[in-house]
Amino acid sequence: MSARTDVEADQNQATSGITPDHITSTLQTKLEASHVDISDLSGGCGQMYEAIIVSPQFAKKTTLARHRLVNSTLKKEIAAIHAWTPKCFTPEEWEKKKGGG
């Protein structure tokens, strides 16, 4: 379900309770994420998100295991939105990526 107007977008977020701030807070609390950057790719309707998540809990986990950890943490939130794309990094990987290496 996508919003056709800004008012509809606000209503979608209000009824689902899913906002970038809510997702960020949940990830910081439950995954001890040191960096979370949520991008709303839906044009503001709150139905399609991409996220960069940096957490020490991703250490020694495959990409699939990291995604499963995030998805299980955000199970209720993901069920309420249309699309979710996490990009998961350990703090060391994130520092390397930011440094261009």
Rank of each mutant, 00 (worst) to 15 (best):
L69W: 00
D21P: 04
G101M: 10
T29Q: 13
Q28E: 15
T73Y: 05
C45I: 01
E50Y: 01
K30Q: 14
L69T: 10
K87L: 09
G46K: 01
G17H: 07
L41I: 10
K97L: 14
A83T: 12
C45P: 00
E32P: 00
A3C: 13
V54E: 00
Q28P: 04
S39C: 10
K76Y: 07
A14M: 12
S72K: 14
P86L: 07
E92Y: 11
G44V: 01
H35A: 02
R4M: 08
K87P: 04
E50Q: 12
S55T: 02
Q57H: 06
S42E: 00
V36S: 02
N12F: 14
H67W: 05
V7G: 07
V54M: 02
K98E: 13
P56H: 07
T63F: 06
D6E: 12
K98S: 08
V70T: 11
A14Q: 14
D40H: 00
Q47E: 00
G101V: 11
S25N: 14
T90L: 10
L64R: 12
F89I: 06
K60H: 15
E95P: 03
E50F: 01
G46V: 02
T15L: 13
L69M: 15
N12V: 07
S25P: 05
L69Y: 03
T5S: 14
W94R: 07
V7L: 14
D37H: 11
K75I: 05
Q57T: 09
G46F: 01
S42Q: 00
T5E: 06
A33S: 04
V70L: 10
V70E: 02
S42H: 03
S42Y: 02
Q13P: 02
G43L: 06
I78S: 09
W94V: 05
A14N: 10
K75V: 06
K87R: 15
P86W: 03
T29I: 10
L27Q: 03
E77H: 08
P56I: 05
T24G: 11
N71M: 12
Q47R: 03
K97D: 12
E93D: 13
K96R: 14
E32T: 09
H35D: 02
I38T: 02
I52H: 00
T19Q: 11
E95F: 08
A79Q: 14
I81M: 04
V70W: 03
T63Y: 04
M1Y: 10
G101D: 13
T5D: 04
E32F: 09
A65R: 10
A83Q: 13
S39H: 07
E77I: 05
I23A: 07
T15W: 08
T73A: 09
K96H: 14
G100K: 08
D21Q: 15
Q13S: 11
G46W: 00
K87W: 05
I18H: 00
D21E: 15
D10V: 08
E8C: 08
E93F: 10
T15A: 14
T73W: 05
N71T: 10
P91A: 15
C45Y: 00
L64Q: 12
N71A: 09
T62A: 05
T5C: 04
D10L: 13
A80R: 08
G17Q: 07
L74K: 04
G46M: 02
A51V: 11
Q57C: 04
Q13E: 09
E93Y: 08
A3K: 03
L69E: 08
